[in-house]
């Protein structure tokens, strides 16, 4: 019971302690710097990255949600700019395949172990 209450507090605590600063940092870490080689906007010092940082800063201060900012940028630059791949038709395979493989592997393993343990 004690553990349960702690868990609830934790979950709750987590959502309210999210400051603008954290929100901004999180967004910048999830954006690809288009003019760099696989770098995030947060890591990059390029001119493009600095501009995007300013824009995100502005949007966060205007009170836009994370989702709104992501969709604003992906609208302009395509999903290529998002490192946190959105769940869409074209990424179902990416997001679900690992779980399917894990389950299939587990079933296979279970059958092998069960079959051999009986003998």
């Amino acid at each position: 019971m004690k553990i349960l209450s702690i868990i609830i507090i934790l979950l709750f605590n987590n959502t309210i302690s999210f400051s603008n600063e954290n929100k901004k940092n999180e967004i910048l870490k999830n954006l690809r710097c288009l003019v760099c080689q696989g770098q995030t906007i947060s890591d990059s010092n390029s001119d493009f990255a600095l501009t995007i940082k300013d824009v995100v800063d502005e949007k966060v201060n205007e009170g836009l949600s994370k989702k709104e900012i992501y969709s604003f940028l992906s609208d302009k630059y395509g999903d290529w700019i998002l490192f946190n791949t959105p769940l869409k038709k074209n990424s179902y395979f990416l997001w679900f395949m690992p779980y399917i493989l894990f389950i299939l592997g587990g079933v296979f393993l279970y059958l092998v172990i069960k079959k051999r343990a009986q003998k």
């Binding site: 003019v35 501009t51 940028l73 630059y77």
Partner: peptide, 13 residues
């Protein structure tokens, strides 16, 4: 001047 407006047009260079 600061490049922010161009973001609306999807400009990156």
């Amino acid at each position: 001047f600061d490049g922010k407006k161009s973001i609306n047009f999807g400009i990156y260079g």
